[in-house]
């Protein structure tokens, strides 16, 4: 059995989740704690992937990141990297699709941290960064952990946008969900069953762990 799709899926979703958590944490903090012009628009923009069809999302990314697209040309000319139809395209698709699943619970968790605890820390002489590191994030960590797991699960299962941006090139951009689609199309039921089994087991454990994370002492 070819384990490449499994390997690629892991590589893509780990990378995408990494970016979702780093960038998403900043966004979640901004949304939870700051008021600024255009906040509502930014919020709607981040949440878009939850509601628009993945193929539409993929199409937008293709237009944006393609050789003739504004971002695509920048990457191609200035950095010499092409995004579309490579594993990097799959990472970006998975990142955009998984970002809202991280930002939502992370934002709610940060909003749930009592502001007086942050103020108490400031009054005790701590910088904003120290407050974030020792109070806000530790107290919001369950939401952040749950969001990370959800984002990772979403990245693993990403199909539509990935297919549009990265294509279906076996051994190059064929992720697990796409490999399942391919196996069914080819009538390879045995292969499809194995891959579906792996995904199902994975999704189940993800939900199980999310539930465990959301329980806590304080």
């Amino acid at each position: 059995m070819d384990i490449f799709p499994l390997y690629l899926t892991l590589k893509v979703s780990v990378t995408a989740t990494f970016f979702s958590v780093i960038i998403g944490l900043g966004l979640a903090y901004l949304m939870a704690r700051k008021g600024f012009w255009g906040k509502g628009v930014l919020d709607a923009l981040i949440m878009q992937p939850l509601v628009i069809p993945p193929t539409v999302l993929g199409y937008y990314l293709l237009v944006l990141l393609g050789r003739s697209g504004p971002l695509g040309r920048f990457f191609e000319d200035k950095l010499g990297v092409s995004i579309v139809f490579t594993w990097k395209g799959a990472v970006i698709a998975a990142f955009v699709a998984s970002l809202p699943l991280f930002v939502r619970p992370a934002r709610a968790a940060i909003e749930g941290v009592d502001r007086n605890l942050e103020n108490a820390a400031r009054l005790l002489g701590k910088t904003e960064w120290e407050v974030l590191k020792t109070i806000t994030i530790p107290l919001a960590w369950r939401g952040i952990a749950a969001g990370s797991v959800m984002a990772f699960a979403r990245a693993t299962g990403e199909f539509g946008a990935t297919l549009m941006v990265a294509g279906n090139i076996p051994g190059l951009t064929q992720t697990l969900p796409i490999a399942i689609y391919d196996a069914v199309q080819m009538g390879n039921t045995k292969m499809a069953n194995i891959l579906v089994g792996i995904i199902t087991l994975f999704s189940f454990s993800v939900l199980y762990f999310v539930n465990r994370f959301t329980r806590g002492r304080y």
Binding site: D114, L123, K126, L139
Partner: peptide, 19 residues
Amino acid sequence: PIRDRRTGYLFQDYAVFPH
């Protein structure tokens, strides 16, 4: 900034760090 004012403060709801 608040951190440099050396202000002691007690809140009605204590604001002890639960973690």
